[in-house]
Design a protein around this nucleic acid. Structure first.
Lengths: 339, 339
DNA sequence: CTGAAAGCGCTAACAT
DNA sequence: ATGTTAGCGCTTTCAG
């Protein structure tokens, strides 16, 4: 049997209340002498207050939940690391939940987290209509911040990268390099962020008076294979000279397809990716890409959640981060070929 | 105020005890009729039992902690995913803790997890002497399994890859390809697993009667840069024809160094990596490497922990996984050069 | 088949 | 400055 507050009380000849007071650093409600005596025996016996019991009475567990599609995905593990670092600094522990974007898993975890009385939840989901779940969450009046998504729900806060802008600056970079025939490999278009990136691409074209051509767009799946297939399709018969690929993984697939077709990057086709994963510096040529501040988003999400939990008001419902263009070796100026 | 078991009891005209019985599926202690009535109002009111209160009395929280150096590291996030998947299947939630291998963080998290009454802990640490901490853990008699490390402590279980064997088969592959001058880039040698891999390399050499040459070994840091520097050192003046690199990241660095020196892979230098990260299929030439079953190790670690928690005996203190050689394009038969 | 009572380990009024 | 009492929401004897 673990040692309890009563044990400490008995041994130090005080009441449990007094021990509780020193445990919680209550402002000078205890004489210096007894406080010291209590502190000593606590140390001596290596007593640890039972957070479960404490949570039951205070209705505060110092625990938050983080619900994401997949911790194995570098983007989410960076976010998770940011969240956990922040949480740890603020005295919170973090429950990790992987949903694979499955609705049933999402709601299962939400229930579990509610039962375990977490103080708040940070939620990420790629599939669009999970607003339903989120609102169910709020129904239970538990603080929520949504990460990687702009959000328009009362009492829910959103931390996200401006994906539209990401698509825009990626494409603009290509346009600035004189490219006119710019292809686009998108993520699954049922996915909100994928659409935003595509919209950014379109807008950049529009702003430069380049007519949008649907044939130059191919839908991928955010995986290497999907990028490869989409690229194969786009380079066949089309005379694209550049490609905006909605994530790095698909860009790697595109590399494969392009090289397999005997073309060179960037001489024949310039490529811009999205995410700036570690590999993009390793692959050859090094990938020009759009960086999302994943870790920082995690930090901010946690910060916002703590604010809400402690009843402070958060000024804006949404906070967006600006993606950055990281120029490396996979893009170059378009030169009309001399045949 | 959330709705409690008493509310359900009052509304259904039974005692809390009876509600508790149906909540816990007590074997037929309740008439079919009342059981149904209770179930109905539970559903109707969307009542969720408070796991905190339950945990306080049962001394069982259905929660485990996972303490790892860094969730952003692909190897650990794969392990974590395996653990979490298993835990979820068994009705457990997991606390995520990142330590960066720092002793103070490790002990801070251990205390926090104890206070939160986790049912068990899965622990990974690269720095060697954390046995102390682990034993402190046991002192509190909480079930522990150590992952990514062989372990010789009573009541502590180890799940790990056989790193010695990994180093061995990597080197053996090179030897089978006729290489004699085989270099080795190690991880930090203060790290136990790094040493094991190096020992495997030495043993393979020995078994093939190739004299070990200390000059052909360079210590790295498991990062790209370290691999690059170590490779630069090894290819300068040394006539190595092959290289065993203790992780993929350093292998990527070695690629850079080798290409920068105007050499070709595998024609001039064959390379074997370690880990089989996703990139190894993307980089050119595709990397021959040693795969660690990280996800599977997570699954097994969780399984072992659950066993211990539920009081079942685990037959072996340690369970090792065999690493696999994945042959791709970065290794080829050594041919004496015709000058 | 059902309920009353006690208590898990702690904190929060309310005394004194 | 300290203690008494009550109770958080649940499970667990023990009766009936």
């Amino acid at each position: 049997m673990a040692i309890t507050i009563k044990d400490i009380a008995r041994i130090t000849n005080v009441s449990a209340t007094t021990v509780s007071r020193v445990l919680n650093n209550k402002h000078e409600g205890v004489s210096l002498e007894t406080r010291q005596r209590i502190l000593d025996t606590i140390r001596e016996l290596d007593y640890k207050p039972n957070a479960i019991a404490r949570g039951l009475v205070t209705k505060k567990t110092n625990t938050i939940g983080i619900i994401i599609p997949d911790i194995s995905n570098q983007f989410f593990s960076d976010i998770a690391r940011g969240i956990e670092d922040g949480a740890s600094d603020h005295g919170y522990n973090v429950f990790l939940c992987n949903t694979d974007d499955k609705l049933d898993k999402e709601s299962k975890y939400i229930n579990a987290l509610k039962e375990k009385c977490v103080d708040g939840i940070i939620f990420a989901s790629s599939s669009m209509p999970n607003i339903k779940i989120i609102s169910e969450l709020i129904k239970g009046s538990i603080p929520v911040v949504v990460v990687d998504r702009h959000v328009e729900i009362e009492n829910v806060y959103g931390i996200y990268t401006d994906n539209f802008r990401g698509g825009y600056i990626a494409t603009k970079h290509l346009i600035d390099l004189n490219h006119k025939k710019i292809g686009c490999i998108t993520g699954p278009l049922g996915n909100h962020n994928s659409k935003e990136r595509l919209d950014g691409y379109k807008q950049a074209l529009l702003d430069s008076c380049i007519t949008f051509n649907e044939d130059l767009v191919a839908e991928g799946n955010y995986k290497i294979n999907g990028g490869m297939k989409a690229a194969e399709k786009l380079i066949r018969n089309k005379q694209i000279t550049a490609l905006f690929v909605s994530n790095d993984l698909m860009a790697y697939g595109a590399y494969k397809a392009i090289k397999a077709a005997g073309l060179n990057i960037p001489e024949d086709i310039s490529i811009v990716g999205f995410d700036d994963t570690e590999l993009s510096q390793i692959i050859e040529p090094e990938l020009t890409t759009i960086r999302q501040p994943a870790y920082q988003m995690g930090i901010e999400a946690e910060r916002a959640l703590i604010k809400i939990i402690s009843g402070k008001s958060v000024k804006d419902r949404n906070k967006s981060f600006s993606p950055n263009l990281i120029i490396r070796k996979s893009t170059s100026k378009y030169q009309a070929k001399i045949i």
